[in-house]
Every structure is written in C-alpha cells, then in structure tokens.
Design a protein around this nucleic acid. Structure first.
Length: 554
RNA sequence: GCCCUCGUAGCUCAGUAGGAUAGAGCGACCGCCUCCUAAGCGGUAGGUCAUCGGUUCGAUUCCGAUCGAGGGCACCA
C-alpha cells in the first residue's frame, strides 16, 4: 500500500458513500486525496485532512463526516484502522501485509522503481553551467553542474525527453579580453587592465606558442585572432573534460558565435518585428519588453548598429523552440536574476507562455569555508577556485552530493573540512554507508543460503515497527521523485535518501536479517532479506538521480 | 531609490498545495559492539519558526510593513 494507493482507496470510499446517499458532495468526488505522513508517530501511519476540507461543502460537521468515512474505510482492503482525531483528521493504519507487499514489487521493478510517465512526450531543454570559455569552471558554476545534471536525471525519470545544453559565449568583449591576456603573456607583457590573470593563462599561452611559434610576433590583429581561436578551443576542451570527470556531459554545446554568423539573430528580430514588438528610437532598435512586465524596453540593436547581448538570447530562445522543445529551462546564478523579467517578457513577445515554455531557475551562490574561514577568490588576481580544486579537496561524490543537497534558494557555505571527513558528520557517507551495509547483507545471504523469492514471500511477517517505517519510506519514493521534478528541486532526493537511510539503520539495529550461527533460514529471514533488497534498490536509484556512486563496500 | 532570494535549535540546514505536540545532522551530556559493516543505534538538553500587523475555524506556511544578510538594477557581456 503506497500513499497513492491509499489515496485511491479513500476516493473509492468517498464514491461509495456518495452512491449510498450517506454524503452529498456538490462538487463531486475528488480524483485524489492528500495523504500525509503524520509528524507524530502515535497518529498512525498516514493521515488525511479530507474531512476538514469536504465537511463544510457537504454541509456536515467535519467530525461527523470523518466518522462516516472511517466506517467506510474500516472495511477496505489493506486498512487496519481509521480513527478520528482533533477537529476531523483521519488517522489511518495500514495492515502489515498490505505494506510489505511493496518490497517484492520494488525488487521486480529494479531501476525503474520511482520512474513515471508524468512528463512523457515532453521535450525539455535544460541549459546550465554555460560558463564563459575564458577560464576554468570556477566554484560559482559547479553548483549548477551538480544540480543541473541531477535535475536532468530526475526529469528523465518522470518520462521527459531531456537535452542538456551548454551555451558557449564565444562572441564579444570577454573573449577579446581573454585573447589579449594570452597575447600579453606570450609577449612577456603585463596582463591588460581589464584582462584575466592566473597560471592557467600562462599555460594556455605557452601551449598556443608551442603550436604556433611565430604567433606572438605577428601583427596584433592576426596574433590576437590566433590566440583567440586556439585559446578558446583549448579552454573549451578543458572545460568539457573537467565536467566529464565530474560526471556531467552535455548533449549540445551551443556556440553563441553561430547565432550571429548564421543570421539567426536577424531572423529572430525580423520575427519580432512582424509581431509588432520592435520600434526605433535614438538610432537604436528596441524590443517592447515593458509591455510584458519588464521595467523598461530593451535595446536589441545598438545605435552603432551592433547587436546588444540580448539579441543572442532572442535568437537562441527562438532556435530552441524551433528545435521542438516544449520547455526551455535555464539555470542561472543569483547574479543574473535581473535577467528574469526581460527574458520572460521576450518569451511573451514571441507569443509564448512565460514560466511554461521558458523557465529561469535562479540559484544562490556558494562560498567555500575551510577552518571556519571563507575562501575568497578573485579572477583578476588569479586566485580562482575551480571545479578541480573542489574535487581534489573532497572528491566527486561528496562534491555533487554537497552541492545538490541544499535548496537552490539558499546560499550555502560549503565546509571543506566537513565534506572531506569520512565520519558520520558527513551526510553523503551516511547514505552511502547504508548502501554498503545493505550490499553486505545481500552478499552474506548468498553464503548462508538465504534467497528471496516472490512466490514464498510473506509480507505479514514484516510486522516490527521499524520494518513498517522503512516500508513506508520506500513507498514515498515515487512521489518524492515526482515532486523533485515538478518543483525542480533535486535536494529533495538527497533529503529523502537521508531519511530512508536512517529508517534502514534503525531497522538494522533491531531486526537481524540473516540466520545467526547454525540457525536454519526461516521465512522471516527471507522476508527481511526481501526488504533489504528493496531498500538497496531504492537507495541506489536515488543516488543515481544525484549522480553519486552507490558503493558495495566501504 | 527600485527589484530578487534568504532570516527556523549553539552550528549547518530541512519542512509550509494553511492544519494536530515545528524536524534532522553536527556540537554538548549519558548509554549500546561474543553474531549481518559502531561510517551505526537509543536517550537527555537546546525554539516567542527575525519583528509587527492582516486574511482564516486554524498561519512557521498566504498578504502587507519593518529590521537584518546576500545579490542585482547599462545602447557591458
């Protein structure tokens, strides 16, 4: 019995009551009922406030309504008891057998347990990281790498056709600065005032010179072009590699330059012109974003005839839509939140629906802390904290878990000492340890001749309180995945795994799974082993959604 | 000045499709290893859910104001 099944059971009971004339619902019987896990254990396995919601509509005291529903539910299959509490809550206990039946279902479903078809048929474009190729991925971008990739996995799990996309800003002044910084380094000059510093600039410059020994001595324009082209290429390759090593691979690397060279920008502007969204003023061309909630209109073509930055965004968005994406999600740091209203306005100007066809996910920034002191970085000074630095300090698993574990709305201070520690302070180990313990039990079961078999499995044997709690936790998983996907909140998966790992450790503490000493395997051993196998599957599936490994041994 | 996010236990953070006694980990204190991994489990202590007001039968959750923290407000990219 999962919460979803219980919801259905309650809906059926409401329908039966309506049919028998016991209650009258003016708006009809709801299609689903909110079923919660009560905070207080004494309140039962599940609770619903449906009587409070519907009582008034039915013209009844909520408690009377709840009483009728409780009586009806008492005879429903899988329900052990239904009691009224407080103003009209219904506290429900599920029969032990009904709960335990889930375990073999999970084992049979395997990696597909928790997946659904909620987003089946939807083409989703997920853009994240998109760091400029002017330096290594720094700490600001790493959060999106971890969270974005995880979100991609989660959306895939609910049936979406996900394309991970990286927008490569290889056009404009930042690239010029990068090229000038490389050239200056190669010529042994100081870095330009507005340029980039750091060892990586010297390394790249040296690599370019090794390939083109005469590059520094060329005329400025030619030299710059050489360093630009080669430098961007090297940086691009390096960024791809470090992301790959982090477990993040993109389906599409989209180059901004292509938009300008292919005429896509002109086409997008022409399209908006047709829609009557453009006008000329002060020798510039403007987009009427203020008609759709932006603070003011935005310049698309500057008075000098050059396209403004937003022109690339217009073309890029249109391109995504023309490639057939129903939903375009873009993950950005808090320093970009000012773009939200203009991007939404741009979406509306094209005649699309903001927040449906285009969604901007804004996440707060990350600070690294070591020995209680924040680590400050400066691009100019070259003290850049990179993805590699983080991985070197705490490893890929801990990095990804730590970054995905918190709500994107909250700023996080990542304590490197904590996340590097191999102790219980460290949440990623707590979850991974549960998986290792589960794996160990399953390994040992083979040696002891305990096997799982759905045909002989007796769910009613899983009657200990901690077994019920663990089963209910496993039953929550599909809903957690759906919620995480719909709310774009991967951290819910991590928190869920911690809860489930906790439920397992508690179960482990009170229920010995395998036969001790010379004991012969019993049905109870086999039933518990089934629960262990189901739990391991769920934790492995959840860790998979976070891109974190599920170790067999620790 | 305007806009966005946040403010929950000593610390780091969950939770709010309005609900019953607000949760976890860490830190502190006290316990638990002849048998499946003690990277674990149990217990104690710790809160006016920033403040004030509003809506509601009911607000940590929704709305408004105030205070505090971070970020952002170009014909830059």
């Amino acid at each position: 019995m999962t919460p979803e099944q219980l919801s259905t059971t309650i809906v059926d009971a409401l329908a039966a009551l309506t049919a028998s004339g016991g209650i009258t619902l003016p708006d009809g019987v709801p299609t689903e009922v909110l079923v919660e896990r009560p905070k207080v254990k004494d309140h039962g396995d599940y609770a619903t406030n449906i009587a409070l919601k519907l009582g008034k509509r039915a013209g009844m005291n909520p408690r009377d309504f709840a009483q009728l529903l409780a009586d009806q539910l008492a005879s429903a299959e899988g329900i052990a008891s239904a009691e009224i509490a407080g103003p009209g809550f219904l506290n429900i206990r599920v029969a032990a057998g009904a709960q335990g039946a889930l375990a073999p279902q999970i084992v049979a479903a395997g990696t597909s347990y928790g997946t659904s078809d909620a987003y089946a048929g939807q083409k989703v474009n997920l853009e994240f990281v998109s760091a400029n190729p002017t330096g290594p991925i720094h700490i600001g971008g790493v959060r999106w790498a971890a969270v974005g990739d995880s979100l991609g996995r989660i959306l895939t799990a609910i049936g979406a056709d996900v394309t991970r996309e990286y927008y490569f800003n290889d056009h404009g002044v930042q690239i010029d600065r990068f090229a000038r910084s490389l050239l200056a380094d190669a010529r042994g000059e100081d870095a330009p005032e507005d340029g980039y510093g750091g060892q990586y600039i010297s390394d790249i410059a040296a690599t370019v010179v090794a390939k083109h020994p005469d590059a520094p001595t060329l005329r400025d324009a030619e030299a710059l072009e050489t360093f630009r082209a080669e430098g961007v290429d090297l940086m691009f390759t390096e960024i791809k590699k470090s992301l790959h090593d982090f477990g993040v691979d993109f389906d599409v690397y989209f180059h901004e330059n292509d938009l300008h060279e292919s005429g896509a920008v002109d086409r997008a502007i022409a399209r908006l012109d047709e829609l009557g969204m453009m006008y000329d003023k002060d020798d510039a061309r403007w987009l009427k974003t203020s008609e759709f909630g932006d603070d003011k209109d935005r310049v698309v073509i500057k008075s000098d005839g050059e396209p403004a930055y937003i022109s690339g965004d217009l073309a890029y968005y249109l391109d995504k839509r023309e490639r057939g994406f129903d939903r375009c999600l873009i993950m950005l740091g808090a320093d970009h939140h000012g773009y939200v209203s203009r991007m939404m306005a741009m979406c509306a100007a094209f005649g699309d629906t903001p927040k449906v066809n285009l969604e901007l996910l804004i996440g707060q920034l990350v600070n690294l802390v070591r020995d209680g002191q924040p680590l400050r970085m400066s691009k100019r000074a070259g003290t850049v904290l990179t993805l590699e630095d983080l991985v070197e300090a705490i490893g890929v698993d801990a990095s990804r878990y730590a970054l995905a574990r918190y709500s994107m709305d909250s700023m996080i201070d990542l304590d490197l000492d904590l996340w590097a520690s191999q102790t219980s302070d460290n949440p990623v180990y707590y979850v991974q340890y549960a998986h290792a313990r589960l794996s160990s039990i399953i390994r040992n079961a083979v040696d002891l001749g305990v096997t799982i078999d759905e045909a002989t499995f007796d769910p009613s044997l899983l009657a200990v309180e901690q077994e019920g709690a663990l089963l209910r936790s496993l039953a929550d998983y599909p809903k957690v995945v759906t919620r995480a996907a719909e709310l774009r909140e991967p951290h819910r998966i991590a928190r869920y795994l911690e809860d489930t790992a906790s439920a397992f450790h508690k179960f482990y503490d009170v229920a010995h799974v395998l036969p001790k000493g010379d004991e012969e395997p019993t049905d109870l051993h086999r039933a518990r082993l089934m629960l262990v196998a189901a739990t391991r599957q769920v934790i492995a599936n959840g860790l998979g959604l976070l891109g974190v490994s599920a170790p067999e041994r620790m």
